[in-house]
Design a protein around this nucleic acid. Structure first.
Lengths: 343, 343
DNA sequence: GTTAGCACTCTTGGCATGAGAGTGCTAATA
DNA sequence: TATTAGCACTCTCATGCCAAGAGTGCTAAC
């Protein structure tokens, strides 16, 4: 189904106008705002046709038109002008990253803030993860009696800690020896490559406690490849008129809970390379049926990578969203590349 | 100012009724609900007197009465029955803690959930901190070229990490030697006790990089004694009728931002031992003028400690709040004591 | 194919109205 | 003297009505 040029132009105007006014757009106001060489009556005819195609609807008989989910989809796929950030906009963003410290976590947080502020919607960013996590180094620190702190450093350059309890009291010296032994045996291996129980020297009780914990930590880390994202800008989004009623607001507040989002982000939609857009009912059933995601991957091919994007009402400035998400993702990727290559 | 017994009883009924109905309470309904041996006219007279004292008000001429902030204060200080959790309630809470793992962070998170669920308001819990932080142990792990990961374990049993950049490339062996040397010199000291530059052996460039970072981490840790609290149950609270309008909801959403709360929690009000209550305009000027805090400290005297409590509208079930906050604080304290003493 | 014209529909805001809840005051009562 | 019955009065809230405004769909003319 491809629309005639004129019909497409009208749909694009409807989408544009609705995106920025949030009120249904009528035939009259459309010809006034855009120097269409047409009368409102003609536009009405075209609108009726667009409605037959299922691309727009009215909320009630005497109201203007609003895009349907299919209308947005058509707009995004066929009508939306390709837009990149102006160099002014790019500079503003870059500047913020240069202000920040060189810590990866801080960049990720900053990316979320930038997206939320620029797009007035919810920004989602996950920490970068390696799909394959290797144990780099483990360390044991004496705490009290039979307790010790286990610190595990993994190849995705994160350190994790956990308190362990041994059957008997272990002093620092014994702990260090134990750590050395385990580092030799398990270091630089993925969980899958850990020597099986039979093959390796039989493990003592103390070893077993540590290995169990390490295995568990690494597994969690791998499973957390899609971990709960950082969520910024909830208030920005809720200020939009679609959330003006407190019921809708409460429901939405529930929908943007980190824990709920973790499973709901349509990461399947993200292919390689470009920005993915998931609109309204293209989402899996649930509370996101009236919202859209604009998502991209960032990070190093073969290395650590994460996801970032925006979530907002279906009435979202898709052009701006795509441009911002793409640019911020490129910036993050570039920063990670430099970090990895040591400048 | 002390009220007559009867007037006090009436005030208490007004507060109780208003807390659970959220609508202004009239003289008529008051005599109906509580077998007061009085006519509504008498109650009206008493109400007029209470209003003269500034303990209650009407929203408009023909509405029932609602407690003023001073009214709540009087209620809380002089009228509210002392209430402790029933053993059933206690058991339910304890059960949840026993289900959880033995990790401190998890307990803290759980405490927040329990409070939020039981009280239908926002729960606030800070991680326990030692006021005096000592360096327990530091470790350096080679990353790439001249970069290394610094892991610092402190006495408040937290591990912290940071990426360092050395002027020259350092291999793991050199890093370990360096770490050992620094552990010997700085281990088990607070920042204040770190040997001054002059006294200690002159530091090389590499040492300096590490020491600077460690000092910075410890200082941050000490300053973070009041860190951003865990916030749970925002949605629970926003369901209450006082937040029914979306404007109020947005303002409140802003007020319960972790970063904003960190500075706003009236921790000064917390004396030793018991639960502190801060009502409405007793808060410092700002967005919390219509809300109340119920707060307590938890943790070991002289050891790590933190704060926990609830934030809600001034119309809050203070009795329940106090009982829950007190109990959860006791449970956490007890758990920490056991952890510290090794069961 | 386009457009002018017009009847029709639906929302929205303003306004009046009446029921309901509650108050304050006065005068009678215990 | 404290309490209470009674009553006029006030204010909110829901309801219904009306007029204005915006927009549509259809028909007939260009």
């Amino acid at each position: 189904m491809a629309l005639s040029e004129r019909r497409g132009r009208i749909l694009a105007f409807i989408v544009d106008d609705f995106i920025d006014s949030a009120t249904p757009v009528g035939s009259q106001s459309l010809v006034e705002r855009h120097a269409l060489g047409l009368s409102s009556a003609t536009v009405r005819n075209e609108m009726a046709a667009l409605e037959d195609e299922g691309l727009i609807t009215h909320p009630h008989t005497s109201a203007g038109r609003i895009p349907s989910h299919r209308g947005y989809r058509y707009y995004v796929s066929s009508l939306m002008p390709e837009r990149n950030l102006s160099s002014q906009e790019q500079f503003t963003i870059l500047h913020q990253f240069h202000q920040a410290s060189g810590q990866l976590e801080e960049w990720v947080q900053l990316a979320a803030s930038v997206l939320a502020n620029n797009l007035h919607n919810v920004a989602l960013v996950t920490q970068p993860r390696l799909l394959e996590v290797r144990l780099k180094h483990l360390q044991l620190v004496e705490l009290l009696d039979n307790r010790a702190l286990l610190v595990v450093v993994t190849t995705d350059s994160g350190a994790h800690q956990r308190t362990l309890e041994f059957p008997v009291t272990m002093h620092q010296e014994a702990l260090s020896r134990l750590a050395n032994r385990l580092n030799a045996e398990f270091g630089h291996k993925t969980v899958a490559e850990f020597p099986s129980r039979e093959r390796s020297a039989p493990l003592g009780e103390a070893e077993l406690v540590v290995v169990t914990a390490v295995t568990d930590l690494l597994l969690r880390e791998e499973q957390a490849a899609v971990e709960a994202p950082i969520v910024e800008g909830v208030r920005e989004m809720l200020r939009q008129p679609e959330f003006g009623h407190s019921d809708r607001m409460l429901d939405t507040l529930e929908a943007v809970d980190e824990r709920r989002l973790r499973d709901a982000i349509p990461s399947g939609a993200m292919g390689e390379g470009d920005v993915a857009i998931v609109i309204g009912d293209e989402n899996r059933p649930g509370p996101y049926q009236d919202m859209s995601f604009v998502l991209a991957r960032y990070g190093l091919p073969g290395g650590a990578s994460g996801m970032l994007g925006v979530l907002g009402p279906t009435r979202m400035a898709y052009g701006d969203a795509v441009a911002n998400v793409r640019y911020v993702s490129d910036v993050l990727t570039e920063l990670m590349r430099r970090l990895h290559e040591g400048e």
